[in-house]
Design a protein around this nucleic acid. Structure first.
Lengths: 154, 154
DNA sequence: GTGAATGCAAAACCTTTGCAACTGG
DNA sequence: CCAGTTGCAAAGGTTTTGCATTCAC
């Protein structure tokens, strides 16, 4: 059995679930994989439209939904903002920078459990855990610190 | 200085921030405090409408937004479902039961830090952390276990 | 009295759906 | 060939907005 180094394509997971491997699904998946910056559906649409001008926004939504069903992509939601999409299927949280609006993946520490942090009721069954952070990313935090020193030279 | 046992009203936090204490804001806040079951805006609207038939849905949204600004209420969002509202302002997560659709508060364990769970980048500034769980609540998990034993008597 | 808040309705917004035309396997 | 998928447009549901009227302070 040969172990694949990296899976850059989405044809097998689609076929395994009875979905067709269409050009639109390939382009949508590629758009997520090439720039892993958590775009919205409209941003994905604009990127794919450059290579495939005939694609429609509805199809982008459909493709993203199908890819999610296949476990290739995850929705990322914060508050009521439009959904963003992420091809990182490892367990992770998201960091939203309030200043530059970037979204970063936050890895789960190995050998840790959410039970050390949250008092989840005994005998409940957890099938999914989502977590997100808001604040300033390292770059913006450095800039903000600089600015506040200038503006408030205590 | 007299320490208040419990604050059941929202007039002071509103006044402190320059907002008026209107009958609608009081009723919306009371509706959240009386039954702490994380209702949607439409559910709050229906409950308040019984005591105050003239209230409009737009006003409920406005009141919820104002109460949120005053720190009396928090939005609760999961995926793209309608926002739910919660008058518990202690740090906590939420558990969504997939079977009975109830939403429970999950307390933060004392003396714990999210850094034990999540590898947040060094030098970032975290101003907000939100977490949610999906699964089966204890009651539904017990019922599901029963059912699966009957249906799949391995 | 005066500016803020309400009620109503319309708009804005993101996302889903219906259907004829097309296409992957 | 034919069920699954697309493109287009219209509908859906939640939330916000505009404005005349009302009300808290």
């Amino acid at each position: 059995m040969v172990k694949k180094i990296e899976s850059k394509t989405c044809d097998e997971p689609l076929h395994e679930r009875g979905f067709r491997f269409t050009a639109q699904r390939r382009e949508v998946y590629d758009a997520l994989m090439v720039r892993r910056d958590h775009p919205t559906a409209v941003e994905v649409f604009m990127r794919v439209k450059e290579k495939m001008p005939s694609i429609s926004l509805g199809t982008v939504y459909n493709c993203l939904e199908t890819l999610t069903e296949c476990g290739l992509v995850k929705h990322v939601n914060l508050d009521r903002a439009p959904s963003r999409y992420c091809p990182n299927i490892e367990p992770h949280a998201h960091f939203f920078c309030d200043q530059c609006n970037a979204v970063f993946d936050v890895p789960l520490r190995k050998d840790s459990s959410f039970e050390t942090l949250w008092a989840v009721p005994a005998n409940s069954v957890v099938s999914q855990h989502e977590a997100s952070f808001r604040g300033l990313c390292p770059a913006c935090a450095a800039g903000a610190g600089l600015k506040s020193k200038i503006k408030n030279p205590k």
